[in-house]
């Protein structure tokens, strides 16, 4: 009995060792892209599967979207050449292009030229919407979004430091990272944190879908505009697919006219972008030491 069992075990282990390490090279000539997980995953999947179908058709190359769970995972996948194109935020894009020489920002949404962060507060704080920076936040509890987010971390931290001349954990009694914008809203709405910083597009989407109770949480300040999301592509795609491939991808992205597709981002349209457009983001990131 025991003998047959151990034989079986041995047999199965050998098979595991033989087959376990096999990784299908399924994506060998598939053009793969990803996006930072800044929103509901169902929404992202729906949006980017449509984008994948559109790119496949227009490029004549099989194109696939792979979802990831964190901003860092998106950057790492791009760096490791497991994806060749990505819809990055300002900060993740700058990071990715720093790590992959030759990679380029090729297109951004019309709205991304002037993106905004909302500072939001629970009603009990008594903080009111105002045109000037809300210095009354000091001493409250505060939550950012994801650690790698431009609108949920980089820009709000920059303005906090600039206005208070102190690090966030010296300004606030408690500083948290909610993980994503939707959670930031939920945590401030429940009063778990008194104040938070959130992507203005996500706020507006959630307001429309009725997830926000205006009696409990409200915008108290809006940052000055800054450049945010963009499509970034690796420099070696021309060698891998065909000469002029990068140019072709750029044109196809800029020609995305399907109103449904654009509305899913939501962006009015896509316009050309270049690495230099994101210099302000790089400068800010270096200033607050998120990039060496």
């Amino acid at each position: 009995m025991m003998r047959s069992r151990s034989t079986l075990l041995l047999f199965s282990l050998v098979s595991l060792l033989l087959f376990g390490g096999v990784t299908p090279q399924a994506f060998a000539d598939t053009f793969v892209f990803t996006a930072i997980p800044d929103e509901d995953e169902a929404r992202l999947r729906q949006r980017f599967n449509k984008v994948a179908a559109y790119l496949s058709k227009e490029l004549g190359v099989e194109t696939k979207y792979v979802p990831v769970k964190s901003y860092a995972a998106a950057v790492t996948a791009f760096r490791n050449n497991q994806v060749q194109l990505a819809w990055f935020g300002g900060l993740s894009g700058v990071r990715a292009r720093n790590l992959v020489p030759g990679s380029e920002a090729i297109a951004q949404g019309y709205e991304d030229q002037a993106f905004l962060t909302y500072f939001i507060a629970h009603a009990s704080t008594g903080l009111k919407s105002s045109g000037t920076f809300p210095a009354g936040m000091a001493g409250k509890t505060f939550t950012f979004g994801s650690k790698g987010s431009t609108s949920g971390r980089l820009m709000p931290e920059y303005y906090v430091r600039q206005n208070f001349n102190k690090a966030p954990d010296e300004v606030f009694t408690k500083v948290g990272f909610s993980g994503n914008h939707a959670k930031t809203i939920a945590l401030v709405q429940s009063g778990a944190y008194q104040v938070g910083a959130v992507n203005f597009k996500v706020w507006e989407n959630n307001l429309k879908s009725g997830k926000i109770d205006p009696a409990k949480v409200a915008i108290i300040w809006t940052t000055p505009p800054y450049p945010d999301y963009q499509w970034t592509i690796r420099g070696d795609v021309d060698q891998r697919w065909k000469p002029g491939f990068k140019q072709r991808v750029t044109e196809v992205l800029l020609n995305m006219k399907d109103p449904d597709l654009l509305a899913s981002f939501p962006r009015k349209n896509f316009i050309p972008a270049k690495n230099a457009d994101y210099q302000p983001i790089l400068d800010v990131a270096k200033q607050i030491k998120l990039i060496d």
């Binding site: 087959f19 994506f27 050449n81």
Partner: peptide
């Protein structure tokens, strides 16, 4: 079940799904 472990372990690797190529 102990008797099924071998079978399970045989099949399992094929269910892990594909992924990015290792470089």
């Amino acid at each position: 079940r102990p008797k099924l472990v071998g079978l399970y372990v045989l099949i399992a690797p094929f269910l892990l799904g594909g992924g990015a190529a290792i470089d």
